[in-house]
Every structure is written in structure tokens, then in C-alpha cells.
Design a protein around this nucleic acid. Structure first.
Lengths: 204, 204, 204, 204
DNA sequence: CATGAATGAGTATTCATTCAT
DNA sequence: TATGAATGAATACTCATTCAT
């Protein structure tokens, strides 16, 4: 019709993939992985059902991608903090705040990672375990270094400490995600959690 | 047809309900809630598909029952410990050991409770939240009493501490349930976890 | 326990069969044949599910029995009227009133016969058609005799008239069964219906 | 893939809905509503099972649609006749002939409407009643106008007459649908039925 | 690349019927 | 006879995935 229009470009969206992921995070968080229909993701992303299969192998693949990219981003940042030159106590504190802080800005991603991934035992065992171990390792390394350097008590297994810390953060997020989602409450919880762990770790 | 069939065995099993629950824990742990077919539970329990519906409203109800009865049993024991006359530190320590110890005997149940229940957002929100809150309350009460009595530092929110403790135990169980399942490792983790939290809580 | 009680006879009920039929009429009328569970009939009859199978081959057999016994009773009475010595016009009038009157006292049976039997095409074709034909014949005979005797016009096919009359009564019953079920309304409808058909049939 | 396939024929059939309805009428008439499997309808229509659910809410909806569209069409035509300027007697006569004539072309539809709809008490009460009342009203209006104008006797309740007429036609159709289905017989029955009612209604 | 109509495999649940007691 | 717990065949409906356009 418009003969001279430079380029029709009815649909600009070269960002379909990103839009699908973003939409998926939203609906997964709201309804859970199994209760979410592919068509719902498509609708929320403003694409056709079939389009999703141009970017992802299947529904599982969407969840896995969200998890992988999300945890990858988290791991990158965590590693930076973990390997910084700051005092060990600050690193621990920042690790906690970082995760909770990061999530505060991305509540849906938080719910998807903490809740949804457990929804598929298969996915959990296949994908989450290895990444989970990397996560544990990052924290455990900080603890171990702190022990060797003399800041932290030496009688605790660093990996056990790391698991406890992960669990504590996960539980706080879970409560927060299932509940009101008040940012202030989250921040306060972060402070208390950090204080609890740091005192628990401190060498005397 | 089989003329000499050894015994007609229309098994008058009086324990059908228990057998179904036991079978369900096993297959849920193995395959996850959604991937488990009702017929698989029936087969594992040695009953007909329809029999399950004589004892449970539906598939959801089976999972919820497992969760509720498991948590209920735990809560009863936890309350005893929480309200005992022992020093507060001992109570915390015993709460941790109790949970991990209880689960040690029922690895599949541990997986169902820590992993499977999160598979249905609806179930999680509907059933888990209230029981979870009761659980949190029991622990939080111990912390609060300890604070008032002067054993624990007063600057930490008891409910945040309780949530952290729950998360830590949950994470330890999760790792254990998904992994090797070595009882010794579990016991050692319990000791370290307890030490970490008690030091973190101690008033100085 | 009661050692000397003459005869325990916890359940006198030698009338189980009748009680089952009566209960079945009630629940079939309320919910329809397909929506009625065998267990509902049993409950309404105050017997165990399995007991029904001591008196009836299966669920279909219960409906068929109701229909057969009901229509049989109706046919017997109709034949009496049809073969009486009364004026033909009176016979027609009484046939109408009889059916509607009979039903008025047995509203549930009316609904079962007019509505439920159509619920199983198989049953309808297999059982109802022959009995229906007998019914048509009884009325058609009265019409035919009236024609030959000179009371009714001769240009109408007696079987067509009989079908029309059956249909009219059925429609009145249907409306009545689906609606309020006011006996007075039914009686008035019977009068009008009779008048309409008698005038339509009268030789001039 | 198949290079020479004559026509890929992912049949872009634009008439799926109509084909499903047509197929449903056929199988409902043959086996009855309850005995008909959704998959049978699908097979008869040459579509996949799931396709039916793109056009209808559920199996009930298919039956209701058949009924509604059939009755709707009938009502439209009936109203035209009822409101025409013809003598009242002709209108009645044409109403009868129209219905029987319409059905003559669609014996299966006749059976579905007269027999199948009664198979579900729920559907009958929910859908049939209102449309049935409209139908009754159309006929009753003709009768009433004829009474007021002086053609018909005034001592009959128009709605009772209408119900009788409906029943008579229904019974004729039922016999016809369940029996041979001889068109000539149907036409003759229509004439006799009309004559019976007109004489019955005539003012003298 | 994008679409969305069509597909059809897959499953929880129901309920008539049986049979050990 | 009577029971009612147990059975398991049977089926409507959903929804991830495909592919002709």
C-alpha cells in the first residue's frame, strides 16, 4: 500500500528470543512450570505459539535456558566479589546482599530459579546439580580462604557452610516470593542473615 | 484359565492406605510429582488404579498427605524439644539433629518434601505455607525465649533466624537426597551447621 | 447379644426388589438414567450396591423393568377402559384422564417413562417400540371401533390419531414433569386435550 | 519431502465446523448421545479428536448446537407462517406440514432432536425448555389470534393446544425416525394430523 | 522468519460389576 | 442372601508440537 515507505518493518522485534525468555520468566513465576502453557508464554511475549520453537527446542529448553543464563549471570558476579581483595567478611556480606539485592530487582527470576527449577526433578538433577555445585564452590572458596588467612574459624567444613548459606538465602527468597514481596523486609532480612553467618564464622 | 493358580489372593490387605503412601513416596522421589502416573503408584503399591481413589481424593491429595503427615510428625517432635527445659543452645542443636536424623531414615521422604512439593505452585502456596509458618514459629519461639533469657543476642529477628535455619537444613537435605546419601556425611553436616548457628546466635 | 430375642431380623425387607425399583424411579426421575449411579440407587433403597445385582442383571435391566412393569400396568388399565361398554367418546376421555391421572399420583414414574426411556436409544428401539405399538393399538382400536360404529369420522387413520393422542399426552406430561408439577394445571390440561381430540374426531 | 505428492492436503477445510456437526448428527442418531464417543464423531468428520474442541466447548456443546441451530431455523420459518396474512386454518396446516416436511429431509436430525436431547435431563432442562417455550408461544399465538378473530373455539387454552400439537408432531416424527422412514407415510400422517386438529379447533 | 490451525498421543478419574467374606 | 471393598476397562479432554501457508 504505502509505496514509498522505506521499509515496512511491521514487526521490528529482532529481540524475539529475549522477549520470549522475559515472558516465560513472568508466567513461570506466576503459575509454575507445569501449569504454564506454551501458548501462554507466546501470548505474553506477543508471538505465535510456533515461533517459540524457532528459538527453543521445547518447553523444557525454555526453563533450562532461563536457569542457565540466570545462574550464569549470578555466578559471574559472585566470582568477581569472591575474588576481590576486600576483607573476607565483606565478601560474605556482599555475596548475600548481592543475591538478595539482585533478586529484589528481578523478583520473577528469583522465583523461577528458587522454586520452578525444582519442579522438574529431571531438570534439577541434570542441569541444576552441576551449576549448584559451582555456586557452592564459589562460596566455599571464600570461606576456605578466610579460614586459611585466619579470619574464620577453621573447624567448619567450608562446603557445609556454603550449603547453609545457600539454603538460608533460598529460604528468605522463597518466603519473600510467596508472600508480600516487600523490598524493605528483604533488605532487613539480608542484614540479619549476614550478621548471623559472620558471627557464626568469626574466629575468636 | 490358570487351573492351578496357587492362591486366588483377593488380598484383604488392611493396610492399603499405608501401602499407597509408601509406594507414592518411592515413585515421587524417583520421577517427581508430575512425571509420576497414578497407575505407577498403584502398581508399586500392588493395588488397582481405582483403589487409590478410595483413600485419596486425587493425585494432589496423595502428595499433600505425604507432606502433611511428614511435617506433622516433625512438628510434634520439634515442639517437644522446643518446649523442653534444656538450655536454649541444646534445644537448637537438637532441633537440627532431629530433623536431619529423622530424614536420614527416610531419604525418599526427604526428597519428596524438599523437592516434590515445590513442583506445584498451587500446592505449595495452599498447603506448604501454613505448615511452613508453624514450623518457623516453633523455631522462632526458641530463639525469642533465648534472647529474652539472655543466651542469644537480641539484635536478630527471630523469624529471620528461623528461616535461615530452615533453609540451611533444607539445603543440606537437598544435597544429600540428590547425592550419595551417606549417613555419616549427614551427621557431620548437622554438627557443623549447629555450631555455625549457635556461634552466630551467642550473646557476648 | 440379645440372647432371647425371638428373631433378630435386623433386616426384614423381603421386598428388596420392590424397594430397589421404587428408589430407582425416584433417582432416575431426578437425575436421568445416565447420570444416575448404581450406588445412588442402592443408597436410596437402603441396600448394598451388590444387592442390586441379585435382583437385576445390570443397570439397564433396572430401567427396562421399570418401563415394562409400568407400561404393563398402564396397558392393563387402558385395555379395560378401551373394551368397556361406554360410549366411545367417554372411553377416549377416560383414556386421557386415566393416563394423566395415573401419572399425577406417580409423577416420578411419569418422568421415567416419558423422559428416561428415550435416554438409551438401544433400549428405546429394543424394548419401547414394541410396547409403544401395543399402546398405539389399544387407542387405535377404540378409534376404529368408533368409526365403524358411526361415532367418529371415518377419514382419519386410527393409528395416526392414536399417535397424535400419545404425543399430546406425552408433551403435557413432559411440560408438567419439567415444570412446577401443579396437579390442578394437569387436570385442566387433560380436559382441554380431551375436548380438542373429541371435537376433532366427531362425525358430523 | 515427498516431492511428487499430488497435493500435500493438510486439508485447509474451511468447513470443519459444519462437517463436525453433520458427522455428529449422523452418529448421535445411530448410537445415541451417551453411547457416542467423541473420537467417533471426529473420525466420521475426518478430523482429529482435538479439532472438535477448537469449535465446540465439549461434547454437550455439540449436541446443544445441533439442537439450537435446528430449532432456530425451524422457529424462523414458523414465525413467518404464523405471522402471515393467511387464514388461521391454513397457518396451522402449514405449520404442521412445514415441520414434518423439514424433517423429512433430515431424518437423522429429527431423531437427534426428538430422541437424543432427552438423553440428558440436564441439557433438556437447561436448553430445551426456553426454546420449547418459544416454540409453544408461536403456535399459541396463532391459536389465540384465531380465537379472537372468531375462527377457533374460545374454550381451549391456546398453550395447551400448542403443547398437544407439538406432542402430536413429535410422536409422528419419533415413530417415523425409529421406523421405516417412508416419506409418503409421513405426508399422509401430516394431512390427518392437521385435519384432526383443525376440526377440533373449529368454532361452530 | 512467522504464523496458528490442526494434530493425536497421553492420563486422571469414574463407576458398573464382581466376589471373598 | 447380603455386603461393600476392590477392581480395571473405558473415555473426554488437554496441550506440546508440527508444518502448510
Amino acid at each position: 500500500m504505502a509505496v514509498h515507505s522505506p521499509a515496512p518493518r511491521r514487526k521490528r522485534a529482532p529481540d524475539k528470543r529475549a522477549r520470549i525468555l522475559k515472558a516465560a520468566i513472568k508466567v513461570f513465576a506466576k503459575n509454575g512450570f507445569y501449569a504454564t502453557r506454551v501458548s501462554e508464554i507466546a501470548k505474553a511475549a506477543g508471538v505465535a505459539d510456533g515461533t517459540i520453537y524457532l528459538y527453543f527446542k521445547n518447553k523444557d529448553d525454555v526453563l533450562v535456558t532461563i536457569f542457565e543464563e540466570g545462574i550464569e549471570r549470578l555466578l559471574t558476579i559472585l566470582r568477581e566479589v569472591a575474588e576481590s581483595e576486600e576483607p573476607f567478611e565483606n565478601r560474605i556480606q556482599r555475596i548475600i546482599e548481592l543475591q538478595l539485592g539482585l533478586m529484589e530487582e528481578q523478583r520473577d527470576l528469583a522465583e523461577v530459579i528458587t522454586v520452578n527449577l525444582r519442579q522438574s526433578s529431571r531438570l534439577l538433577k541434570q542441569y541444576a546439580t552441576p551449576l549448584f555445585m559451582q555456586y557452592i564452590d564459589v562460596i566455599a572458596d571464600v570461606v576456605r580462604d578466610g579460614q586459611e588467612e585466619g579470619t574464620f574459624r577453621k573447624d567448619l567444613n567450608p562446603r557445609v557452610v556454603a550449603r547453609c548459606l545457600f539454603g538460608a538465602i533460598d529460604a528468605i527468597l522463597l518466603t519473600w516470593a510467596l508472600g508480600e514481596g516487600d523490598p524493605a523486609a528483604l533488605r532487613k532480612a539480608a542484614t540479619h542473615c549476614a550478621s548471623l553467618f559472620l558471627e557464626g564464622l568469626r574466629k575468636r
